[in-house]
Amino acid sequence: MPAMPQERDPSRVSLYVDDEFYRALVANFSDWQRDEREVTNPAIRDRCQALLYQEARLLDQGQFEKWLTLYTPECLYWVPATPEKGDPRKEVAIAFDDRRRLEDRVYRLRTGYAWSQVPPSRTTRLISNVEVFRADQQATYMVRSTFVINEFRAGETRRLAGWSGHRLAQHDGRWQILVKQINLLDCDQNLRNPSVIL
């Protein structure tokens, strides 16, 4: 990857989360799961599914730095606080992390002082019902999948469940995640210790 000048590096400054970013985000995540856009090419479907599985494995193994490399420099990790999602310019989300904040999230977990993750949760993720849809842009796909995260921490095992929308694209010659929208079933309810990366 070519070196980015520090004053524009999305790991350090957030210039890309602009009006157009928000507009496109809301548009791209509205009404995208349409039958006529479904991708049936098994090679593409396999590639998308493999990326989702890899992501799940890296998170289960706590390889957060490697997990970050699955995301493009100008990425988004979005956990809406309502099933209707809302306009993130006007609503808070459970999480709305651009590149820098996503790196903040990992940095915090690595300090050893993030008490909600000391000791860290153990997780296994089941990813299923993977469906791939064409996006408007070339070589860009929207992927719907359902998940169950089994989480063990502080003597208790619990389940987090929902579905994700991944926006994937080929970036610098490999498949990467542009946006991940995580829709928890109970996103609009009070959540106990929502500190694992979803």
Partner: peptide, 28 residues
Amino acid sequence: VDDVNALRMRTQEAFPNFGEVDDAANFE
């Protein structure tokens, strides 16, 4: 005002995500 709110939504997400979860873990 819309630009202020676009920033204000993001600043408000920080403490519940990165602060309160640790207090709540301590409360437990």
